[in-house]
Computed example of a mutant assay.
Amino acid sequence: MSCSAVAASALLWLAAAPAGASPEAATPPPATALEPFFADIVGRAQSLKGRAEAMRKTQGPADAAFKTDLADLAELDMQAHQRLKARGTDGDLTCILRGIAEDLPVKMAALQMAADEAARDLALREMIYLLNDNIEVIVTPPSVTSDLAPGGV
């Protein structure tokens, strides 16, 4: 399966997950999420998600700093993809990070081209979902079907 297909499937699956669902037993994050490089990606995505949510509430514009920070996050996601690919580890995560890196600039372009309030709101909602996926794919432990033991990434 191509990286694009895996990324699209994972993003749809994550977007469809119930918002308030909590696991029965607390599972530690995978080892990858504890690495400073990946923790930095999570922190940046959380910050950008909060800023995008604030823009959606206030209808404020995306300033130059937001655009730059989003582009920087996309670059870090691509670097994360390349690091994981070089390690030969979890192929799904590798592909999903590549997909996110490629989709972030597309979502920014959609926001910039939004012609009216409804289109802008849709663009921001999609960007927020993508940023949330960026966080969750790194901090969520591998599932039983991923053939990886939790923490063994």
Rank of each mutant, 00 (worst) to 15 (best):
K85D: 12
D69C: 01
L111Y: 13
M108F: 15
L111W: 10
M127E: 07
K107I: 00
K107V: 05
R98Q: 11
T68Q: 13
L84E: 08
G88H: 05
D103Q: 15
L76F: 13
D103M: 15
R98T: 00
E117A: 12
Q79L: 09
D69P: 10
Q82E: 15
K107Q: 11
A80G: 12
R87V: 05
E117S: 09
L70Q: 02
K67I: 10
Q79S: 06
D116E: 11
K107F: 10
A118S: 11
Q82H: 02
G91D: 14
K107Y: 04
Q112H: 01
A65H: 08
L93V: 08
D63M: 03
A65C: 07
R125K: 09
T94A: 13
L124H: 00
V106E: 05
A80I: 02
L124D: 03
D77H: 02
E117Q: 10
I96A: 04
E102W: 09
L73R: 02
G91S: 12
D69Y: 04
D72F: 15
L84D: 04
R87K: 10
M127Q: 04
M78R: 06
I96G: 01
A119Y: 06
K107T: 06
T89A: 15
M113V: 04
R83L: 13
L97I: 03
G91K: 07
G91A: 13
R120S: 13
G91Y: 06
D72T: 07
A62S: 09
G91N: 11
A118C: 06
A115I: 07
A119K: 08
C95I: 08
A119N: 01
G91M: 15
M127N: 00
D116C: 09
A115T: 09
E102N: 09
D72H: 06
G88T: 06
D69A: 13
C95F: 09
A71K: 13
A80H: 01
A118T: 09
M127I: 03
I96R: 02
T94W: 08
L111T: 02
L124K: 00
L104W: 05
L122P: 00
A115M: 09
T89S: 14
A118L: 14
A119F: 08
A74H: 00
L111K: 01
T89W: 15
R83I: 07
L84R: 02
D69R: 04
L93A: 07
L84P: 04
R120D: 07
A80W: 02
A115L: 10
E102Q: 15
L104V: 13
V106H: 00
L93H: 03
A109C: 08
E75W: 05
T94G: 09
A115Y: 07
R83M: 15
R125M: 12
A119M: 07
D90N: 14
K107R: 14
R125D: 15
H81V: 03
K107L: 10
D121W: 01
E117I: 12
A62R: 03
A74S: 11
